[in-house]
């Protein structure tokens, strides 16, 4: 068994002397782990978020296998080391992918969305909105997509302002006004990429995706939400970026 292609590093764990078990995420093969030799030389490459060009080989498909050769395509991590929010954003995406997606299944849409987030992490005013869309896409990929196309009460597709925490379906602002306090706010930028991001929208987006990620993915697995995500929200809040 063998494949060659681009992938994003999710993380690496030391394994024996000079080796590591590295987990990568590729568009065609999803989360894939493998042994990498000579990790001392590759320490800078095997940082989360870096894009690598790699060949994965194993005698049988179900074996752990190994990555060789493994070369850097483009580095992300080194450019973010001084930016706390961006590092937490990067760590949170990695942790959520590992939490929500099974190994060795392709999720090209999540890969594309993750790439967009990684490419934008140097743009502090841009990436939190893209990160929120990544979480929304992750819910869809994991089979828990929200229906934000039309109002669950009236069927209209305009002025959608809320999401039901029970059904995950959108609701029109006027139709749901009477029980708005029981619903989750739906920021416009999550359904319309052209919509401006207003103050409070990022906080609403984190609350919305966080609610469903926790209830539908983390809780059933008996795992908590990633620490990095909590730290990210705290940091953005303290700096008035929510």
């Amino acid at each position: 068994m063998e494949w060659t292609g681009s992938a994003i590093v999710l993380g690496a764990k030391p394994f024996g002397e000079g080796k590591a078990i590295v987990e990568l995420f590729s568009a065609e093969h999803g989360r894939t782990a493998g042994v990498v030799h000579g990790v001392r030389r590759l320490g800078g490459v095997l940082q989360a978020g870096n894009r690598v060009h790699v060949t994965w080989k194993a005698r049988l498909a179900e074996q752990l296998g190994f990555f060789a050769p493994l070369e850097m395509e483009s580095g992300v991590a080194a450019f973010l080391l001084d930016d706390k929010a961006a590092l937490d954003g990067l760590t949170s995406t990695v942790a959520l992918i590992r939490l929500a997606l099974p190994e060795r299944q392709a999720y090209p849409a999540v890969y594309g969305s993750l790439s967009v987030v990684l490419d934008s992490l140097a743009e502090p005013h841009l990436w939190p909105a893209l990160y929120s869309r990544f979480e929304l896409g992750l819910l869809t990929a994991a089979g828990y997509g929200l229906d934000l196309s039309r109002c669950a009460l009236t069927g209209v597709a305009h002025d959608l302002a809320f999401v039901s925490p029970k059904s995950g379906r959108a609701a029109n602002r006027d139709a749901a006004a009477a029980f708005a306090d029981k619903l989750l706010a739906l920021p416009p930028f999550l359904i319309d990429p052209e919509a401006p991001v207003a103050s409070g929208d990022i906080a609403d987006a984190f609350a919305l995706t966080g609610f469903f990620l926790e209830r539908r993915i983390a809780d059933p697995k008996g795992e908590g939400m990633p620490d990095a995500r909590r730290r990210l929200i705290e940091h953005l809040g303290m700096n008035g970026r929510l």
């Binding site: 320490g43 991590a77 706390k84 590092l87």
Partner: peptide
Amino acid sequence: SATVDGQTTAHVVTE
């Protein structure tokens, strides 16, 4: 360490 984990830890300790 000058790694994602090392510097994430550094930011948390600084905070």
